[in-house]
């Protein structure tokens, strides 16, 4: 049972880099712009640009590209599934046919486009969590959501919930791994049999995991209360957010890249 190893989903990798030092609001807004760009554009050159941008980000953030790619491992199945659906269900010029299944020229293009879109989406979103600590991310989100507080939106609570969720991802993976090993040691067979049988075999893993999650949540709430946590009011920050010139340049650069490809699309 090695499938939980090397997961970087939601993990923060501290480093003293240009990307790490950017304001979390700048990084969140840049990722939103990039995600919009990824979904809006169809020009093939755009995908090379996204790939190039990822390599540049990896260099500027001092995080190896291998670590960045590991972040996409949990969604590989989803990417393959999405690409498969588009490959077989898109109508157009038939290239290959077998029974009710057919692959069309348009289907191949669509499968590649959707698969790559999803893949880049995960990698860019992963970059945000790799280079921004959950606490910074939470502060950034809270600051961006603050205008909506006047409409009753719980900005601080949402941001804190996200911080804790990200903080507990590695812990819960460890916990799942431990339960898996314990159940396998007691004779559970999680790797053989059909899909239904394997899903059923996971029940003894999920039940203790849920119990542990609730227990941990209760303990954490108590520990937070003991450390005087009472919501966002009156709370200060060790590192208050400060928008710098480098943030303006970074977001302007991202918007320029996205705008360039939108224009390229409109012309093409």
């Amino acid at each position: 049972m090695k499938f939980l190893n090397h997961l970087t989903l939601g993990q923060y990798v501290p480093a003293n880099s240009f990307v790490h030092q950017l304001d979390p609001r700048c990084k969140i807004l840049s990722v939103i712009a990039l995600l919009a760009g990824i979904f809006l554009m169809v020009h093939p050159a755009a995908f090379f640009a996204w790939g190039g941008l990822l390599l540049l980000l990896s260099r500027f953030s001092r995080i190896s590209f291998k670590v960045v790619l590991q972040g996409a491992r949990p969604v590989v199945l989803l990417v393959v599934f999405t690409a498969g659906i588009h490959l077989f269900l898109t109508k157009g010029t038939v290239l290959w046919e077998w029974g009710f299944l057919s692959v069309t020229r348009e289907g191949v293009t669509m499968a590649l486009r959707m698969g790559l879109r999803l893949f880049f989406l995960v990698l860019f979103a992963g970059f945000l969590t790799l280079t921004t600590s959950p606490m910074e991310l939470s502060d950034g989100l809270e600051s961006l959501f603050r205008p909506f507080e006047r409409f009753g939106f719980p900005a601080h609570e949402m941001a804190m919930m996200m911080t804790i969720a990200l903080r507990f991802i590695p812990t819960l993976f460890d916990e799942t791994e431990r339960i898996l090993r314990a159940q396998i040691a007691r004779g559970a067979d999680l790797e053989h049999g059909g899909l239904f049988r394997r899903m059923k075999a996971f029940i003894p893993v999920l039940v203790p995991l849920f119990v542990i999650v609730f227990q941990r949540a209760e303990d954490l709430a108590l520990a937070m209360e003991a450390r005087c946590y009472r919501g966002g009011s009156g709370r200060t920050r060790m590192n208050p957010l400060a928008w710098k010139k480098s943030d303006t340049f970074a977001i302007a650069g991202v918007i320029a890249i996205v705008a360039f490809f939108v224009l390229l699309d409109l012309k093409g």
Binding site: P14, R167, R227, M238
Partner: peptide
């Protein structure tokens, strides 16, 4: 432990 980085976790109490 609330935060994902050592110093951020220590800062949690004084921030509150």
């Amino acid at each position: 432990i609330v935060a994902s980085v050592v110093e951020e976790d220590v800062a949690f109490g004084p921030e509150n």
